[in-house]
């Protein structure tokens, strides 16, 4: 156990144990901590030394796998990238990502998110598929730069947890899937723009976004999903106007 003089920190963690209790409950843990500890270190300490049943997702510990997201003091964060020393409130409140069903403790059901990613058609669609002998579809650094920002998404779902529109209606396509759609819309190798836009420019697609903007604030990779949705709206609207005004023009 901790030596005298060791700094201690109190955490309040939301627990849900479907096999035991019907409702989630809070449990407090007081653990020794150092200034270089992140929230995930604290969770690992509890699991290793106090309660091995504490359940949460994590993998890379370096902000790229996107699996350790949780609501810390009410804000969606990657627990591997959030230092305890930067948190002012005591106890530190750790809850599962908001707007998702809880499976156990901090683990949420990501199935709805997976379905949304798929709905955005996140792959290159070609009308003229080239034979493999002709090599890869090439791209200049400038063409890559057009969609690089949106391609940095790590699917951590913090944006869905921050989005009140998704919290209100789970049918909403949501931030990350929309940003991913734009990523392929802006890809010079893609030829499926019309098909993809038709899939996302719907009532429960980009048009449901009311631009709260919190998705872009919490995004750990600066993908700016809120901006991506507005770009998609502009793209869909201009395409519609062109189709109405110039019905015979190539699109």
């Amino acid at each position: 156990m901790a030596d005298r003089g060791t700094k201690m920190i109190k955490l309040r963690i939301s627990r849900y144990r479907p096999e035991r209790s019907g409702e989630p409950f809070d449990q407090e843990f007081t653990i020794p901590y150092r200034d270089d500890m992140v929230v995930l270190d604290a969770l690992n300490y509890i699991k290793d030394h106090i309660d091995p049943t504490l359940t949460y997702r994590w993998s890379c510990r370096m902000g790229i796998c996107g699996s350790c997201g949780a609501n810390v003091d009410g804000t969606p964060k990657l627990t591997c990238a959030l230092y305890l020393r930067d948190l002012k409130k005591r106890p530190v409140l750790i809850e599962p990502l908001a707007n998702f069903a809880v499976l156990k403790d901090l683990v949420v059901d990501i199935e709805p998110f997976m379905e949304k990613l798929e709905a955005a058609k996140p792959y290159i669609i070609r009308k003229d598929e080239r034979p493999i002998e002709r090599g890869e579809y090439r791209q200049t650094p400038e063409e890559l730069e057009l969609y690089r920002q949106q391609s940095l998404c790590i699917n951590c779902m913090l944006c869905y947890s921050a989005c009140p529109v998704y919290g209100h209606d789970e049918k909403f396509l949501g931030p990350a899937a929309s940003a991913l759609a734009l990523r392929y819309e802006l890809d010079s190798r893609d030829q499926g723009s019309e098909e993809r836009l038709a899939a996302v420019a719907t009532e429960h697609g980009i048009w449901q976004c009311t631009f709260v903007g919190e998705c872009s604030v919490v995004c750990p990779k600066h993908v700016d999903p809120a901006g991506a949705i507005q770009q998609l709206k502009a793209l869909a609207a201009t395409r519609l106007m062109k189709a109405m005004l110039l019905p015979l023009a190539p699109r």
């Binding site: 989630p24 707007n99 069903a101 809880v102 499976l103 919290g167």
Partner: peptide
């Protein structure tokens, strides 16, 4: 299975 997804009320 004891999978019982819990939906929190906002």
């Amino acid at each position: 299975t004891v999978r019982k997804p819990y939906v929190r009320q906002r």
